[in-house]
Design a protein around this nucleic acid. Sequence first.
DNA 1: TAAAAAAGACAGACTGTTCTGTCTTTATTA
DNA 2: TAATAAAGACAGAACAGTCTGTCTTTTTTA
Lengths: 198, 198
Amino acid sequence: MSVFINVFYICIVKRSEIKQHIIETASQLFYRNGYNLTGINEIISTSGVAKATLYNHFKSKEDICVAYLQHKNNSFIKQIEAFCLSKELGKGRVLALFEFLELFFEDQDFNGCWCIKTVAEIPRDNEIILTEIQTQKRDFIRFIEQLIIDNIEDINVQESFMMAKQVYLLYEAAVSESHLHKDVWPINSSKQLCNKII
Amino acid sequence: MSVFINVFYICIVKRSEIKQHIIETASQLFYRNGYNLTGINEIISTSGVAKATLYNHFKSKEDICVAYLQHKNNSFIKQIEAFCLSKELGKGRVLALFEFLELFFEDQDFNGCWCIKTVAEIPRDNEIILTEIQTQKRDFIRFIEQLIIDNIEDINVQESFMMAKQVYLLYEAAVSESHLHKDVWPINSSKQLCNKII
DNA sequence: TAAAAAAGACAGACTGTTCTGTCTTTATTA
DNA sequence: TAATAAAGACAGAACAGTCTGTCTTTTTTA
């Protein structure tokens, strides 16, 4: 039996993948239930990892938080980029942002923006986490800007940056408000307005 | 000394105003430091009220949370309404929303939207608090809608509702994002875009 | 004098973090 | 290939706090 369990366990988490496994487990819990409401004990019991092992990989809960944010952002950027590029060249690729969000919203795990959620939970003076979040958002604005440059005709640098910020604001509002109202209307309204300005 | 302290204390909070005093103290703490990071003990020590007294007025921390949200919303609506009406009739009264937000942002106590913050902190299934928040937001949209009807010429009911939702989304994005980026640019971008659509 | 507030002890559950000592896996050597 | 060494994952206790909410006793106010 011991052998079976061992073999079985290895199938789930290889030794070399333990850190990643902890990150994924913590991410699910943090995103679903919130950072402060998720305890270390819940993370270790859910992931099946020993406490000492967790603290071998991360020096503190805050450390896990940063890893969680990065994990979320990495997969998000990868997915939304692939989704937009799957559409035909042109305005549609910008509007695809909101179509992606629609799918994201319909996902049962949707729980709003992890950055906004986390900012709301940490003390004002936690610069480590705040900096990580601001970096993610600035990268996202740059991603939108490139999308605009590549897909909107006759647009100069100044205009494209201004437009990127506006599209970004509409996207962010759509995420937060669809979550708050538990309804898709903010996504539609934002998309409509975005269509008007691009 | 005991007498002095008592006299001094009475000057601050009359007996009949204790409940209101608790709400105001809790509001400051919840808004500044977050709901979960603010303990009952901090509320009582800051307000100078006994624990039993607090639990005489509120049956639970959640109860105080609802009172906090209502308190915030009441004073917000009162202030923004007065500010908008202080401007000249016309489009300017709609744009005044963002001018109000600018002042709000510059206030040292500014810490984003209390609704978004609170939603991020409570468990998904807390319907009492969520309902309170959704009601506040719907009321705010209705307020914006009335502002549009009163100040934009030749607009029908359908258009005004659609526009109200869009202006609302821009306002909400401006609040959250100016807070996140610690910068005024989201307010300016939102205002600019709002000006374009009204 | 009766009602209400103050003060703070209290229960009981939870927090993040550190630690010990054991067992298992992996890498290196002979 | 077999023996050994190093790395690190394991369980679980302990630490010094925290938390909400209840309760009793004393003091103050109307």
